[in-house]
Amino acid sequence: MSSGLTESEIGWKLRTGRWQRPMRGVLVTHSGPVTDIQMMWAALASIGPGAVLGGASAASLDRLRGFDRGPLVVLVDAARHVAPRRGVIIRRSRYLGSDDVHPRRLPPRTRLPRSVVDMANWAATEDDARAALAAAVQQRLVTVAELRGVVEGRRPLRRHRLITDTLSDLDDGAHSVAEMLYRTIEKRFDLPAGQRQKQIDAGGRRYLDVWYEPWRVWVEIDGGYHREASHWWGDLARQNAGVLQDRLILRFPVHVLRTSPALVAEQVTAALRQRGWHPDL
């Protein structure tokens, strides 16, 4: 054996727990917990030459926050047939050239724009797909132009239309799934386009989620069900300041944007009409 140990000696170390075999053909020569990065290297070594990390597994190494849970994702050339590995999703791709795989970063992985587009394309739901794209742009790790470049070179994508529409929304300044859901409601129900993240002076610098300036109507979108007390009071203080400055305020949780868009549109329409908006003018 190249390790200097016989098969029986290696077997004894494995049976007694001194060593571990986290993946087929790979040994870890300690008895402690196998770290995430060790599992990544083990998966790549087990699958063999040309294998690279992809999707969320690659993106998390490149500092994308909020998507580091779930099984490892490994990409191999489309011509390869690889047996399943426990805890690993193996995907085949015809696009694993230098434009897609980073030439120097270790463990080997796809470039971040490619990783993010793959995350959106493989996501379990459309909201998850939008969230991956929005998070990468909002965290200032990639640009919309970089993501578009990947999409243009990767046709067809299963979610091509959704991804391109989401990138258009992000290019227009929507930086969260909630903002994109609301933008969809505006377009579907022929509402005027409100300003996003409008900065105002309301007892300090504040940003309004959606602001209809001509009618002084403010729409606030609540993203979380459980908020820290300081955040909760900050929201109330901002709303109180808005009321004192003659702003008409409507608040909607994200799930209502998704499940009851007609109700949201009805209430926003009523608020705008109350302040003088006429859709036909």
Rank of each mutant, 00 (worst) to 15 (best):
P84C: 12
P214S: 03
R183M: 07
L208T: 05
G242M: 09
L170C: 05
A174I: 05
D128I: 12
A124C: 12
F252N: 04
T164L: 08
D62W: 10
D280H: 12
G173T: 12
H81D: 13
G173E: 00
R158V: 15
W19G: 01
A145V: 11
A124H: 13
L75N: 10
G32C: 04
S31H: 13
R196S: 06
A78T: 04
A271R: 11
K13F: 13
G234C: 06
R247I: 14
A124E: 15
R21M: 08
G224P: 05
R227N: 11
G204S: 11
L250S: 05
G17L: 06
D36F: 08
E9T: 09
D99S: 02
L208Q: 06
I89A: 13
L147V: 02
L181G: 08
P214M: 00
R183E: 07
A120E: 02
E179M: 10
P156H: 01
G153I: 02
R92V: 04
V34F: 00
I249F: 07
G54Y: 01
R258E: 06
V142G: 07
E152Y: 07
D190M: 13
A262V: 13
E186P: 11
E152W: 12
R258H: 10
L141G: 01
L44R: 08
Y212E: 07
G87N: 03
L75H: 15
S8V: 14
D280C: 03
S93N: 03
V34L: 06
R188K: 15
V150T: 09
A129P: 00
P108Y: 00
A45V: 11
G66Y: 00
Q20I: 10
D171A: 14
P113R: 02
D68R: 09
T125N: 02
A136F: 01
T6D: 06
